[in-house]
Amino acid sequence: MSPTVPELGRFAEPALLILVSLSDGPKHGYAIMTDVEAGTGKPLGPGTLYAALARLEERGLIEALAPVDRRRPYRLTAVGSTVLSEQLHQLADFAELGLRRLGDAPR
């Protein structure tokens, strides 16, 4: 069974945000931080970022590329892309269910 983001425990949330940030191409640490903050309006601390990056790398969901001027870009692996897609589809289904119950679903 492929690893899933929720298995990362309390780091599931920053991990998912990082995976989404990497979904449009490789980024280095600071670019991920600013991208996540711009997208969510919530700060992502450097300690949390690297704790989550280390876990994602260990589980093969992302991989490090060669550093450029000390900045090392990361990119999604094929497994990471699959896991992210599954997670986002689950979230979309859940959101659709919630909106339908609220009577607010798009027709």
Binding site: H28, G29, Y30, M33, P43, G45, P46, G47, T48, L49, Y50, P67, D69, R70, R71, R72
Partner: peptide
């Protein structure tokens, strides 16, 4: 190396220091 590069990108506030700790 890369972590130091991230920390050097902007001024460190108390939130960032606590997060790094």
């Amino acid at each position: 190396d890369e972590f130091a590069a991230v920390l050097e990108e902007r001024p460190l506030g108390p939130f960032d220091v606590a997060d790094v700790l």
